[in-house]
Nucleic acid binder design. Structure first.
Lengths: 215, 215
DNA sequence: GGATGTGAATGCATTCACAGCA
DNA sequence: TGCTGTGAATGCATTCACATCC
């Protein structure tokens, strides 16, 4: 009989994705000093059903108060703890092109505790230049940087042809979460968390939507 | 009895999303002069089952050849026609911050026929500066620009507090597809196609994934 | 033999509807 | 009364398995 830790049944990925959506809206309400909200009202604001909101949250605990709703500041705290953003995370950027620059200075990252602490680029002409306060470092120094600073998160913003090699190098050095902007399928071991965002693909989906409308 | 055009039953949204993924990979194969591919092989390369690939494609037509597979260049052409990217699309950027800059110069947009033709910003200090070859224009000129040039696509890269107003202005002027990077729920009429990309939320999802792994 | 396209079967995700608590 | 949490029911999405064609 294999040793196995007692895992709670895993929450549906679709619910986890919505947790970020709820959190974003709740942060806004909290800033506006709102105290409580019902599943129905939260759902209405975000285009979900009330049942969906309740079920999503109930996968992770009993956060609500019958007759009252959810206490916003409690729920914000809980959601951050669930998502893992109740602390800050250092990250590195690979690729110092336009997108790398944008992400290095992205207020949404900083505000939510994602701190760029290193930028790497293969182009010698870019090495030594600055992105905000960060100096662009050569790829050769990346492995050591990751190991010494125990970096776990990386963003890939390099051309598609280089993306798989970069991913391999990151993983080899110990990174276990990657956000990839190169429009290429990346292969990574099962224990690595990879999310890819293909901006042109999003645009294609919009164009498809426009066409559907005019049918 | 209401007048109604004869619509083919609509394809599942999940399949439409994968069309972009297939297309991206097929373009790569086409560039490498590969002629045909089977559903099994395409699926293997992208981590889908062969049945999924076949079913997705079959929603849109009969593109395959039994015993042979799919002819890559034909399929690329067909997928572009389905998605609406067999022609190029002008678009405008709203928000000339770092992200706006990055998107204005984004090779993935240009290469796939998404052409930025205007940039707008509410900040007088930014108006008149350049993003690549484009001059940043004041918000006041946006409505007219959209109407005169019949712009249908826009990218919102402004702070969250301004995003809903920008969306309203775009729609009022005639835009019918919006890619939104502001981390806020936007309300738009049903005939508008809106996709929102929340980069910090993607990062949260990665951190959640990392935590799950270490359980 | 090697492939597609597709009904039937399964598996997830969402919604319904209600018991139970404040 | 107002609201949550949750089994049961529905509805989508994915996979299976096979008739069909090159």
């Amino acid at each position: 009989m294999p040793i196995e830790r007692n895992r709670p049944d895993p929450a549906p990925p679709a619910s986890v994705r919505r947790l970020s959506v709820y959190l974003r809206h709740l942060e806004l309400l909290e800033a506006g000093n709102r105290k409580t909200i019902s599943s129905r009202e939260l759902g209405k604001a975000l285009d979900f059903t009330d049942a969906q909101v309740r079920k999503d949250l109930a996968y992770f605990g009993q956060f609500g108060h019958p007759g009252v709703g959810y206490r916003i500041s409690d729920l914000v705290r809980q959601l951050r703890a669930i998502l893992g953003t109740d602390r800050s995370w250092n990250l590195i950027l690979v690729g110092a092109g336009h997108l790398g620059h944008a992400l290095g200075a992205f207020p949404g990252f900083m505000q939510r505790g994602f701190i760029p602490v290193g930028v790497f680029d293969a182009d010698p002409k870019k090495v030594g230049t600055k992105i905000g306060t960060l100096e662009v470092l050569p790829m050769e120094s990346m492995n050591r940087f990751i190991r010494e600073r125990l970096i776990r998160l990386a963003v890939i913003a390099v051309p598609p042809s280089a993306a798989q090699d970069v991913a391999d190098a990151l993983i080899e050095a110990g990174v276990d979460g990657i956000l990839n902007f190169a429009p290429r399928k990346l292969s990574v071991p099962a224990h690595i968390t990879l999310i890819s965002v293909d901006l042109a693909a999003q645009m294609e989906q919009i164009v498809f939507g426009i066409q559907e409308q005019s049918k």
